[in-house]
Amino acid sequence: MTQFPSPDRTMANLAVAEALPDILPPIRRRGPVRTFIARHPTLVLGAGLLLLLVLTAVLAPWLGTLDPGALAPARRLRPPSGNNWFGTDQLGRDIYSRVIYGTRASLMVGFGVSLLSSLVGLAIGLVSGFVRWSDGLIMRAMDGLMSIPPVLLAIALMTLSRGSMGNVILAITIAEIPRVSRLIRGVVLSLRDQPYVDAAIACGTRTPMIIFRHILPNTLAPMTVQATYICASAMILEAILSFVGAGTPPSIPSWGNIMAEGRALWQVKPYIVFFPALFLSTTVLAVNLLGDGLRDALDPRMVKGV
């Protein structure tokens, strides 16, 4: 730490008190990694769990899995055992393999939706917050969009076209855009009134640079946090859509699909539903923990001397 010198006293035409010496508490030294973990336990836990899930999705073929679509009618509805860790379903497919491969579908939907809706929502929110005359119009359109239930929208899209992962992402994204754009609009409106934005205008900074330098960076923290919550709710929505048969096509294993197929048997063979549900809950929990951790960590006041 550099010490700031006390201001030069020769300038005094008003009496200026002698500056007090800086009294700072002694710094407890810890390793940077341990410090970070101690300071942001939820962030580390959430990020760790999510990383594990991403690795699971990427390394699915090498995690002792079988072909998730391979039928084996002779070995159907087996309970969990050494051969089939999570048991088999009514077509004899290995549930463990299906759940592991299903991670891909869930993460793809979760990440895809949060990325797309963040980008579009950010653009809409910025325009709405900055171009005053468009604000009422855009926000009423968002209200309208918000009033359509996402499940209904997805079903409509699936009926109009063929069921596919892309359509699932599109349907959920459309449903999530209003939430992001409202958030960003609110943040932009409050940032616009910050004195530092006025100071920047007085400093001759032009509007595009005001947006990129002073507004955008300060919207990223709330947006990232919002994106994680959207990611979590998109995963749940995907499972719901698959469960009612309007989501991921049955040929692709997804947690919603597995649960949908095990639905009729859940009282006698609960393991079919239990494992994908456990994975879904864990993933949503991980993403939410990450979001909470990010919210705290992205506060610029937490940034220590870089």
Partner: peptide, 21 residues
Amino acid sequence: HPVRRRIQVVFQDPFSSLNPR
């Protein structure tokens, strides 16, 4: 734009008048 250079401002609140990032 060139006129802006000649008139500058110092605001009241030292916390919100500087971009925290």
